[in-house]
């Protein structure tokens, strides 16, 4: 029994690691179509990763161990985060080691080290990226916490499996607080995963880079790990949104068929969320850095409103 659950856990991690580039390929493809361009193949992200892995690493002379350690930390931490978000089943054996607050903490530690790595070489770009990323994070992280606190309050738990279970049973349907929390969560997902209007993942223009500026000095397998972790993070946030707000379709028992079905359903949900993401990204322009305060402030406000409405109405 335990073995079966462990296999499910491994399957889930494999799904995250394996399907994240596919999801990014899908999003890029949709984006090309909406902008009237012909797109690369769905599998292009895999090819990019393979190319990076086969290249040698070029390090700056004064890079310290932090610079070399960070890619492994970021990649590994994202995998651990992926092991606790219910995607296939709510009975994940590793889910109790971390609740949703720990999950935010795991993303925070990856960001902490990425920001340090950005400052390690001592170029202006790296420092600029770190400084901006930490500014965005210091506004996005509290909003994220408030949004998930609202969900936790509505479901009386901070454990992700338990939240998914209660939501699945339909006890928390139609709560106004959840609507606020969901809007906030969408805004934060855009910020945390570095999408338009907060950051543009495909830019390398000096004045507009945030995340890309921090990792500008990376090359070879280090860059591949960071890129892959970024893809996994996007995938994870979509899966997290599904687990917190729309868990229907997830397996509640350990039957192999059910888990296979859950796998197909989660991929379908992700494909749909990719469409939403592309619609948002195509419809908006990237904001100026200091306009982000308003954007993230409204996410924070939405989440706090959600929590207030829980305290007052429910």
């Amino acid at each position: 029994m335990m073995l079966g659950r462990l296999v499910t856990e491994l399957l889930q991690v494999a799904l995250l690691v394996g399907a994240a580039p596919l999801f990014v390929g899908w999003v890029r493809m949709l984006k090309c179509w909406t902008q009237g361009r012909t797109s690369a193949s769905l599998l292009q992200p895999y090819r990019d990763l393979a190319k990076l892995f086969s290249k040698d690493v070029v390090l700056a002379e004064n890079a310290s161990w932090i610079f070399r350690f960070t890619p492994y930390l970021v990649f590994g931490t994202t995998i651990i985060a992926g092991a606790v978000v219910p995607m296939l089943t709510i009975n994940l054996p590793l889910a109790p080691i971390a609740d949703v607050i720990v999950l935010v903490g795991l993303f925070a530690i990856a960001r902490f080290f990425t920001a340090l790595a950005g400052m390690d070489i001592g170029t202006a770009f790296g420092g600029m990226g770190s400084s901006r990323e930490m500014m965005v994070a210091s506004l996005a992280e509290p909003a994220m916490l408030m949004a998930i606190f609202t969900v936790s309050l509505a479901n009386k738990s901070t454990s992700l499996s338990h939240i998914a279970e209660v939501m699945y049973s339909g006890q928390s349907l139609l709560k106004p607080s959840l609507a606020f929390a969901f809007i906030a969560f969408i805004l934060i997902t855009l910020a945390e995963t570095g999408r338009i209007p907060v950051d543009n993942p495909s830019t390398h223009l000096e004045l507009t880079m945030l995340h890309e500026a921090m990792v500008l000095e990376y090359s070879g397998r280090h860059l591949a790990l960071i890129e892959w972790a970024g893809m996994m993070k996007l995938f994870l946030f979509m899966a997290l949104g599904s687990a917190l707000f729309f868990p229907w379709g997830i397996a509640i028992s350990d039957g192999p068929l059910e888990i296979a079905g859950a796998g197909i359903i989660i991929l379908a949900k992700l494909a749909a969320s990719g469409i939403v993401l592309v619609v948002i990204e195509t419809g908006l322009a990237k904001m100026r850095l200091f306009r982000l305060t308003e954007f993230l402030g409204s996410a924070f406000l939405m989440a706090t409103l959600g929590m207030l409405s829980f305290f007052i109405l429910e």
């Binding site: 040698d56 690493v57 070029v58 390090l59 002379e61 001592g122 170029t123």
Partner: peptide, 11 residues
């Protein structure tokens, strides 16, 4: 084993 080259900071 991959190779690691050290080089001056890109300026």
């Amino acid at each position: 084993p991959g190779r690691i080259h050290r080089g001056p900071v890109w300026d």
